[in-house]
Protein backbone atom coordinates (compact mmCIF):
# COMPACT_ATOMS: atom_id res chain seq x y z
CA UNK A 1 0.00 0.00 0.00
CA UNK A 2 2.84 2.35 0.86
CA UNK A 3 4.42 1.57 -2.47
CA UNK A 4 1.14 2.34 -4.17
CA UNK A 5 0.85 5.80 -2.60
CA UNK A 6 4.52 6.45 -3.23
CA UNK A 7 3.93 5.72 -6.92
CA UNK A 8 0.91 8.06 -6.92
CA UNK A 9 3.17 10.83 -5.63
CA UNK A 10 5.79 10.01 -8.26
CA UNK A 11 3.15 10.06 -10.98
CA UNK A 12 1.65 13.34 -9.83
CA UNK A 13 4.95 15.21 -9.78
CA UNK A 14 5.89 13.89 -13.22
CA UNK A 15 2.39 14.62 -14.49
CA UNK A 16 2.34 18.21 -13.28
CA UNK A 17 5.33 18.98 -15.53
CA UNK A 18 3.59 17.43 -18.54
CA UNK A 19 0.45 19.37 -17.63
CA UNK A 20 2.29 22.70 -17.56
CA UNK A 21 3.79 21.96 -20.97
CA UNK A 22 0.55 20.64 -22.45
CA UNK A 23 -1.16 23.96 -21.62
CA UNK A 24 1.07 25.80 -24.07
CA UNK A 25 0.35 23.32 -26.87
CA UNK A 26 -3.35 23.40 -26.34
CA UNK A 27 -3.65 27.21 -26.13
CA UNK A 28 -1.67 27.82 -29.30
CA UNK A 29 -3.56 25.11 -31.12
CA UNK A 30 -6.87 26.48 -29.91
CA UNK A 31 -6.17 29.91 -31.32
CA UNK A 32 -4.28 29.41 -34.60
CA UNK A 33 -4.63 25.65 -35.20
CA UNK A 34 -0.86 25.22 -35.12
CA UNK A 35 1.01 22.55 -33.20
CA UNK A 36 3.96 24.50 -31.89
CA UNK A 37 6.71 21.88 -31.81
CA UNK A 38 9.18 24.45 -30.53
CA UNK A 39 7.26 24.54 -27.26
CA UNK A 40 9.40 21.86 -25.59
CA UNK A 41 12.48 23.91 -26.41
CA UNK A 42 11.10 27.01 -24.72
CA UNK A 43 10.97 24.84 -21.63
CA UNK A 44 14.67 24.14 -22.18
CA UNK A 45 15.34 27.88 -22.57
CA UNK A 46 13.54 28.48 -19.27
CA UNK A 47 15.73 25.92 -17.53
CA UNK A 48 18.90 27.47 -18.94
CA UNK A 49 17.77 30.94 -17.92
CA UNK A 50 17.19 29.63 -14.41
CA UNK A 51 20.65 28.07 -14.43
CA UNK A 52 22.41 31.30 -15.45
CA UNK A 53 20.34 33.70 -13.40
CA UNK A 54 20.87 31.69 -10.22
CA UNK A 55 24.58 31.16 -10.87
CA UNK A 56 25.40 34.67 -12.06
CA UNK A 57 23.01 36.92 -10.15
CA UNK A 58 22.18 34.66 -7.23
CA UNK A 59 18.45 34.81 -7.82
CA UNK A 60 16.33 32.99 -5.26
CA UNK A 61 13.71 30.48 -6.31
CA UNK A 62 10.81 32.94 -6.75
CA UNK A 63 12.94 35.41 -8.73
CA UNK A 64 14.29 32.64 -10.94
CA UNK A 65 10.80 31.26 -11.55
CA UNK A 66 9.23 34.62 -12.39
CA UNK A 67 12.13 35.80 -14.55
CA UNK A 68 12.19 32.56 -16.50
CA UNK A 69 8.46 32.95 -17.12
CA UNK A 70 9.21 36.39 -18.56
CA UNK A 71 12.05 35.00 -20.67
CA UNK A 72 9.81 32.16 -21.86
CA UNK A 73 7.07 34.64 -22.77
CA UNK A 74 9.46 36.90 -24.68
CA UNK A 75 10.99 34.03 -26.64
CA UNK A 76 7.51 32.71 -27.44
CA UNK A 77 6.47 36.10 -28.82
CA UNK A 78 9.69 36.46 -30.82
CA UNK A 79 9.27 33.00 -32.35
CA UNK A 80 5.66 33.76 -33.24
CA UNK A 81 6.57 37.14 -34.77
CA UNK A 82 9.43 35.89 -36.95
CA UNK A 83 8.49 32.31 -37.74
CA UNK A 84 4.72 31.92 -37.67
CA UNK A 85 3.24 35.36 -38.37
CA UNK A 86 4.51 35.57 -41.97
CA UNK A 87 2.84 32.19 -42.56
CA UNK A 88 -0.52 33.10 -41.05
CA UNK A 89 -2.38 32.55 -44.32
CA UNK A 90 -0.31 29.73 -45.78
CA UNK A 91 -1.35 26.07 -45.57
CA UNK A 92 -1.20 24.52 -42.12
CA UNK A 93 1.45 22.02 -43.16
CA UNK A 94 3.85 24.88 -43.97
CA UNK A 95 3.50 26.29 -40.47
CA UNK A 96 3.90 22.83 -38.98
CA UNK A 97 7.17 22.22 -40.83
CA UNK A 98 8.36 25.67 -39.74
CA UNK A 99 7.59 24.73 -36.14
CA UNK A 100 9.79 21.63 -36.42
CA UNK A 101 12.51 23.80 -37.99
CA UNK A 102 12.35 26.29 -35.12
CA UNK A 103 12.62 23.41 -32.68
CA UNK A 104 15.79 22.10 -34.35
CA UNK A 105 17.18 25.61 -34.52
CA UNK A 106 16.75 26.15 -30.78
CA UNK A 107 18.14 22.73 -29.82
CA UNK A 108 21.22 22.87 -32.01
CA UNK A 109 21.74 26.58 -31.47
CA UNK A 110 21.88 26.07 -27.72
CA UNK A 111 24.09 23.00 -28.13
CA UNK A 112 26.45 25.14 -30.24
CA UNK A 113 26.52 28.05 -27.80
CA UNK A 114 26.59 26.16 -24.52
CA UNK A 115 27.84 22.67 -25.63
CA UNK A 116 25.65 19.62 -25.27
CA UNK A 117 27.08 18.77 -21.86
CA UNK A 118 24.71 17.91 -19.06
CA UNK A 119 24.85 20.59 -16.37
CA UNK A 120 23.90 20.36 -12.74
CA UNK A 121 21.27 22.91 -11.77
CA UNK A 122 22.14 25.07 -8.75
CA UNK A 123 20.12 23.90 -5.75
CA UNK A 124 18.54 27.09 -4.42
CA UNK A 125 16.20 25.07 -2.24
CA UNK A 126 17.63 22.28 -0.14
CA UNK A 127 15.67 19.12 -0.68
CA UNK A 128 14.37 17.23 2.35
CA UNK A 129 11.81 14.50 2.71
CA UNK A 130 8.62 14.34 4.78
CA UNK A 131 7.63 10.89 5.91
CA UNK A 132 3.85 10.53 5.98
CA UNK A 133 2.93 7.00 7.05
CA UNK A 134 5.89 5.51 5.20
CA UNK A 135 5.34 7.55 2.05
CA UNK A 136 8.16 9.95 1.27
CA UNK A 137 7.30 13.35 -0.16
CA UNK A 138 10.02 15.88 -0.76
CA UNK A 139 9.50 19.61 -0.33
CA UNK A 140 10.37 20.07 -4.02
CA UNK A 141 7.66 17.64 -5.12
CA UNK A 142 5.13 19.62 -3.08
CA UNK A 143 6.51 22.85 -4.52
CA UNK A 144 6.13 21.55 -8.08
CA UNK A 145 2.57 20.37 -7.50
CA UNK A 146 1.51 23.59 -5.79
CA UNK A 147 3.20 25.87 -8.33
CA UNK A 148 1.69 23.91 -11.20
CA UNK A 149 -1.80 24.07 -9.67
CA UNK A 150 -1.55 27.82 -8.92
CA UNK A 151 -0.39 28.54 -12.46
CA UNK A 152 -3.19 26.46 -13.98
CA UNK A 153 -5.87 28.15 -11.91
CA UNK A 154 -4.39 31.54 -12.76
CA UNK A 155 -4.43 30.68 -16.43
CA UNK A 156 -8.04 29.58 -16.28
CA UNK A 157 -8.95 32.89 -14.57
CA UNK A 158 -7.14 34.91 -17.25
CA UNK A 159 -8.96 33.10 -20.01
CA UNK A 160 -12.40 33.21 -18.41
CA UNK A 161 -12.44 36.51 -16.49
CA UNK A 162 -10.31 39.09 -18.34
CA UNK A 163 -10.94 41.11 -21.44
CA UNK A 164 -7.87 39.65 -23.11
CA UNK A 165 -9.11 36.16 -22.32
CA UNK A 166 -12.41 36.98 -23.91
CA UNK A 167 -10.56 38.19 -27.00
CA UNK A 168 -8.57 34.94 -27.09
CA UNK A 169 -11.73 32.88 -26.95
CA UNK A 170 -13.29 35.00 -29.65
CA UNK A 171 -10.29 34.63 -32.00
CA UNK A 172 -10.23 30.89 -31.46
CA UNK A 173 -13.91 30.56 -32.46
CA UNK A 174 -13.74 32.76 -35.56
CA UNK A 175 -10.78 35.00 -36.30
CA UNK A 176 -12.47 37.01 -39.06
CA UNK A 177 -15.57 37.75 -37.02
CA UNK A 178 -13.40 38.75 -34.07
CA UNK A 179 -11.53 41.19 -36.26
CA UNK A 180 -14.84 42.68 -37.44
CA UNK A 181 -15.87 43.50 -33.89
CA UNK A 182 -12.57 45.32 -33.30
CA UNK A 183 -10.28 42.72 -31.75
CA UNK A 184 -6.60 43.13 -32.62
CA UNK A 185 -5.83 39.62 -33.82
CA UNK A 186 -2.05 39.92 -33.92
CA UNK A 187 -1.90 41.23 -30.38
CA UNK A 188 -4.22 38.50 -29.14
CA UNK A 189 -2.16 35.76 -30.77
CA UNK A 190 1.07 37.21 -29.39
CA UNK A 191 -0.52 37.29 -25.94
CA UNK A 192 -1.50 33.63 -26.27
CA UNK A 193 2.04 32.66 -27.18
CA UNK A 194 3.39 34.70 -24.28
CA UNK A 195 1.04 33.04 -21.83
CA UNK A 196 1.67 29.48 -23.04
CA UNK A 197 5.43 29.97 -23.26
CA UNK A 198 5.63 31.43 -19.77
CA UNK A 199 4.17 28.17 -18.46
CA UNK A 200 6.92 26.29 -20.28
CA UNK A 201 9.56 28.63 -18.82
CA UNK A 202 8.24 27.95 -15.33
CA UNK A 203 8.24 24.19 -15.97
CA UNK A 204 11.90 24.46 -17.03
CA UNK A 205 12.99 25.93 -13.70
CA UNK A 206 10.87 23.45 -11.72
CA UNK A 207 12.41 20.51 -13.59
CA UNK A 208 15.91 21.90 -13.15
CA UNK A 209 15.36 22.11 -9.43
CA UNK A 210 13.70 18.70 -9.17
CA UNK A 211 16.11 16.60 -11.24
CA UNK A 212 19.19 18.81 -10.96
CA UNK A 213 20.25 18.16 -14.56
CA UNK A 214 19.69 20.21 -17.71
CA UNK A 215 20.93 19.94 -21.30
CA UNK A 216 19.99 21.48 -24.67
CA UNK A 217 18.02 18.41 -25.79
CA UNK A 218 16.00 18.11 -22.59
CA UNK A 219 12.89 19.56 -24.23
CA UNK A 220 12.55 16.95 -26.94
CA UNK A 221 10.90 13.96 -25.23
CA UNK A 222 8.85 15.85 -22.62
CA UNK A 223 7.67 18.14 -25.44
CA UNK A 224 6.31 15.24 -27.45
CA UNK A 225 4.75 13.60 -24.41
CA UNK A 226 3.09 16.87 -23.44
CA UNK A 227 1.73 17.04 -26.97
CA UNK A 228 0.21 13.57 -26.46
CA UNK A 229 -1.21 14.80 -23.15
CA UNK A 230 -2.82 17.76 -24.92
CA UNK A 231 -4.37 15.46 -27.53
CA UNK A 232 -5.55 13.08 -24.83
CA UNK A 233 -7.28 15.87 -22.91
CA UNK A 234 -8.78 17.31 -26.07
CA UNK A 235 -6.55 19.69 -27.96
CA UNK A 236 -7.77 23.26 -27.54
CA UNK A 237 -9.18 22.62 -24.07
CA UNK A 238 -7.29 24.08 -21.10
CA UNK A 239 -8.70 21.81 -18.35
CA UNK A 240 -8.26 18.90 -20.74
CA UNK A 241 -4.52 19.61 -21.09
CA UNK A 242 -4.05 19.64 -17.31
CA UNK A 243 -5.92 16.38 -16.92
CA UNK A 244 -4.12 14.81 -19.87
CA UNK A 245 -0.74 15.77 -18.35
CA UNK A 246 -1.52 14.09 -15.06
CA UNK A 247 -2.90 11.00 -16.81
CA UNK A 248 0.24 10.59 -18.94
CA UNK A 249 2.45 11.02 -15.86
CA UNK A 250 0.46 8.36 -14.01
CA UNK A 251 0.52 5.98 -16.95
CA UNK A 252 4.28 6.20 -17.30
CA UNK A 253 4.74 5.64 -13.59
CA UNK A 254 2.37 2.68 -13.64
CA UNK A 255 4.29 0.96 -16.43
CA UNK A 256 7.59 1.45 -14.68
CA UNK A 257 6.27 0.20 -11.36
CA UNK A 258 5.02 -3.09 -12.79
CA UNK A 259 8.42 -3.82 -14.32
CA UNK A 260 7.79 -2.77 -17.91
CA UNK A 261 10.10 0.24 -17.90
CA UNK A 262 11.32 -0.63 -21.40
CA UNK A 263 7.85 0.20 -22.73
CA UNK A 264 7.17 3.38 -20.79
CA UNK A 265 7.71 5.65 -23.81
CA UNK A 266 5.99 3.27 -26.20
CA UNK A 267 2.84 3.16 -24.09
CA UNK A 268 2.47 6.94 -24.31
CA UNK A 269 2.52 6.78 -28.10
CA UNK A 270 0.15 3.83 -28.11
CA UNK A 271 -2.25 6.02 -26.13
CA UNK A 272 -1.90 8.69 -28.81
CA UNK A 273 -2.83 6.20 -31.53
CA UNK A 274 -5.77 4.78 -29.57
CA UNK A 275 -7.13 8.24 -28.76
CA UNK A 276 -6.87 9.33 -32.37
CA UNK A 277 -8.72 6.19 -33.46
CA UNK A 278 -11.61 6.05 -31.01
CA UNK A 279 -11.88 9.52 -29.47
CA UNK A 280 -10.21 11.96 -31.87
CA UNK A 281 -11.59 14.99 -30.04
CA UNK A 282 -10.01 13.89 -26.73
CA UNK A 283 -11.63 13.74 -23.32
CA UNK A 284 -12.80 17.35 -23.08
CA UNK A 285 -12.75 18.24 -26.75
CA UNK A 286 -15.86 19.37 -28.55
CA UNK A 287 -16.75 17.37 -31.58
CA UNK A 288 -17.30 20.10 -34.17
CA UNK A 289 -18.94 19.00 -37.38
CA UNK A 290 -17.35 20.37 -40.53
CA UNK A 291 -19.86 22.27 -42.61
CA UNK A 292 -19.49 22.50 -46.34
Amino acid sequence: MQTFFQQIINGLSLGSIYALLALGYTMVYGIIKLINFAHGDIYMLGAFWGYYSINAWHFNFIEALLSSMVVGAISGVIIEYFAYRPLRHSPRITALITAIGVSFFLENGMAYLFTSDTRSFPQVIQQHNYNIGGVLISNIQILILVTACILMVLLQLIIKRTKMGKAMRAVSVDADAAELVGININRTISFTFALGSSMAGAAGVLIGLYYNSIDPLMGMTPGIKAFVAAVLGGIGSVPGASLGGFLIGMLETLFQSIGLSAYKDAVVYVVLIIILLILPAGIFGKNVKEKV
Binding site: N10, S13, Y211, L217, M220, T221, T253, Q256, S257, S261
Partner: peptide
Protein backbone atom coordinates in the same frame (compact mmCIF):
# COMPACT_ATOMS: atom_id res chain seq x y z
CA UNK B 1 14.57 -2.74 -15.68
CA UNK B 2 15.76 -0.30 -18.28
CA UNK B 3 15.81 3.38 -19.08
CA UNK B 4 16.63 5.46 -22.13
CA UNK B 5 19.26 8.10 -22.68
CA UNK B 6 17.92 11.52 -21.68
CA UNK B 7 15.47 10.17 -19.09
CA UNK B 8 15.26 12.25 -15.97
CA UNK B 9 12.68 10.52 -13.79
CA UNK B 10 13.59 7.19 -12.20
CA UNK B 11 11.41 7.49 -9.09
CA UNK B 12 8.84 4.93 -10.23
CA UNK B 13 11.41 2.22 -11.00
CA UNK B 14 13.36 2.88 -7.81
CA UNK B 15 10.20 2.75 -5.71
CA UNK B 16 9.46 -0.66 -7.22
Amino acid sequence: QTFAEGDKDFNAVLTS
